[in-house]
Design a binder for these strands. Structure first.
Lengths: 164, 164
DNA sequence: TAAGTTAGTCCAATATCTGGACTGAGTCGA
DNA sequence: TCGACTCAGTCCAGATATTGGACTAACTTA
């Protein structure tokens, strides 16, 4: 199966992966959330090739994650900004950054700190249940299909466990 | 810059992206969280090429996200399981699945539902602040570098905003 | 004994990513 | 008015990664 055929699958991660699933997109997006908006700034900060950057930004625009907006008349210049849909990726970005902070920081700690202005503290994200408000533990979650679907074959599997 | 050089960067997303940033890894992981553990099951469910699957699983093992454990003696057979480090990706997986559910579902709703066994309801994840416990809004977060670092050049940027 | 299961490897064709040069419109300073 | 600079890309050819399909290898089951 080719990557482009993934969205046909009955799986939200497959469809998400078409937009975010490549070497650069998540890094670009985390820069966008830091306030970076211009082509050359992305390019200089990330060291990504200009071709690939142009392709990624176009893809993100096509998928409604970013929009271009003019910030200068002469010469006409555009910058990339998050749409509401793009802003909806914030929890995922936070979760991925936190995971990177936890597992790949050096002795001095995470390279970038995030402060919750509302309470004034540096923080990390904790995933809570939308229904009861409690923090969610992976072992307390049970997944089920909406309905049987032959395109998404069943396999033998047990409950979620992990290697100790 | 090449993908392999990304982890040199002072950026947690760059380092995270080395492990997760490709077309298949997130999809494989979301299957792992559904309980899929065997090579052929991944391959049949995802339609990924066997070569790429083998490479991805090896990468995830090298990075300590999965481990192989023997589940059969004759012939010796191994299955892939999450380590504690891998289990730490659950918030990110939930956030990405929720985003896909929200933006790419058909009329009938998300293809897979997740139930919080603790409270008994189908749910989605809400990202909360580890310090004050409140739900986090992207606009209430302020990022800053731990310290100046020439390898990670500053750019002109304003506060986080988005296109309306 | 033949067919099936499981977990891969190997291969050549195709697709994607790379750095670097280049374009083009306009600004800035002297 | 000239020359250097800014910014957002495009274009190219070489390097790298992904693809589907065939194949291996060890063992089980009918």
């Amino acid at each position: 199966m080719r990557w482009e055929d993934l969205p046909e699958q009955q799986c939200s991660m497959a469809r998400t992966s078409v937009v975010l699933g490549d070497r650069w997109t998540l890094v670009i997006l985390s820069d966008v959330f830091l306030g970076v908006r211009r082509f050359d700034d992305f390019q200089k900060r990330l060291g990504i090739s200009r071709t690939t950057l142009a392709n990624r930004l176009r893809l993100l625009e096509e998928h409604g994650v970013l929009t271009q907006r003019q910030y200068e008349d002469r010469p006409p210049r555009f910058e990339y900004r998050l749409t509401e849909k793009g802003l909806g990726l914030y929890p995922a970005i936070i979760a991925l950054l936190d995971w990177g902070d936890e597992h790949y920081s050096d002795e001095a700690g995470p390279p970038i700190l995030r402060r919750h202005k509302t309470c004034g503290h540096d923080f990390h994200g904790v995933m809570h249940c939308s229904e009861c408000g409690e923090a969610v533990n992976p072992r307390d979650v049970e997944a089920r299909k909406r309905e049987p679907d032959d395109r998404f074959p069943e396999v033998k599997r047990g409950p979620l466990t992990y290697a100790s």
